[in-house]
Computed example of a mutant assay.
Amino acid sequence: MLLATFKLCAGSSYRHVRNMKGLRHQAVLAIGQELNRRALGGPTPGAWINQARRRSSLLGSQLEDTLYSDQELAYIQQGEEAMQKALGILSSREGWKKENQQANGDTVLSKVVPDMGKVFRLEVVVDQPMERLYEELVEHMEAMGEWNPNVKEIKVLQKIGKEKVITHELAAEAFLSVRCTKRRGSTCVLAGTATCFGEMPEQKGIIRGEHGPTCMVLRPLAGSPSKTNLTWLLSIDLKGWLPKTIINQVLSQTQVDFANHLRKHLESSPAPDARC
């Protein structure tokens, strides 16, 4: 029911400036440099968070030759900022309270974040290699509704380069998201936030919830590379669909249910060829 989503309507600049190739490349460089500066200014994170934050800027991989439109650059910046903010929240170990712990070790923590409210953090170990989880959660995200009963549909509306997509998710509520994926070394981060998309305006009678920022972090379990540590940061606003007290009561169980559905799906279906 609750997958990552987020919100932004891009600004504009003078048309003759927007059409200049050099300035577009400069804009991409400036975004990456600014995000790097912000990431380095945050609290001291754990080793894997530190690695992810250092490598999650636009300059973490070689820039493609493709020239992005103004709207695409806005989505790129939005996804990068959501990733940095989510990793910043995860990097802080203070203030987390245990909400739910299962016999198998699955744990849900929560904390209150200024300007965001209550956020939830799922920590699980999945008995599958990281490549398998990446395949299911990124490459096959549109098939999630087939194994997760809380999701009716996920549809990719637009791809932006290799690491950004705009998605529409349908559950008890609808979500529109920009998703940012970074795979650097042994760590993979899947981040997202609510967005605006001109070809998918809000529809009368359908509540559009908002997430953000949220992210999943995948990394091999230390000493057991055939297993994966999965961390899921979840922040959600259902826009009046349910009282917040009710939402907070079910969110931790929703995350636990997701882990159980994911494990069941991975165990019952053959592993596809890794394309990572």
Rank of each mutant, 00 (worst) to 15 (best):
A174W: 10
A143Y: 13
L218V: 06
T214A: 02
I207M: 07
E123T: 02
V124T: 06
D237C: 05
P225H: 12
E210C: 12
E173C: 10
R184H: 15
L238Y: 06
I154E: 00
G205T: 13
P129E: 07
M144Q: 12
C188N: 13
E199L: 08
P129F: 04
V126Y: 01
T214C: 02
A222S: 14
K182E: 13
G161L: 06
F120D: 00
Q158V: 09
K204Q: 14
E123Y: 01
E139T: 03
C196M: 12
H168N: 15
A172W: 14
A174V: 10
L234W: 00
I166V: 05
R121C: 08
R183T: 15
K155S: 04
G209Y: 06
Q158M: 13
T187V: 07
K164P: 11
G145P: 04
W147E: 06
L170A: 09
S235C: 09
K164L: 15
E210Q: 14
D237L: 10
V178S: 07
Q158W: 08
K118F: 03
V151K: 01
Q203H: 11
A194Q: 09
P220H: 11
R179Q: 06
S224C: 11
G209H: 05
L137I: 04
L133H: 06
N148H: 14
V126G: 00
A171L: 10
L176V: 07
G161K: 03
G161H: 03
G205V: 15
W232K: 02
L122M: 03
W232D: 00
Q128C: 15
V189T: 03
T195W: 00
L157D: 00
Y134T: 08
L176K: 02
V126W: 01
E153K: 13
Q158C: 11
R121P: 01
E131P: 03
G198K: 08
K159R: 15
K227D: 05
R183F: 15
T228I: 04
K239S: 08
V126K: 01
C188M: 13
R121E: 02
E169C: 08
L176I: 09
C188D: 08
E131M: 11
V217W: 02
Q203D: 11
T231R: 05
A191T: 10
E142G: 02
P149A: 07
S177I: 04
C180N: 15
E163L: 10
E146F: 12
D237P: 05
R179Y: 01
G223Q: 04
G145N: 06
E146R: 07
C180E: 11
L238G: 02
S226W: 13
G185T: 08
E131S: 09
E123G: 00
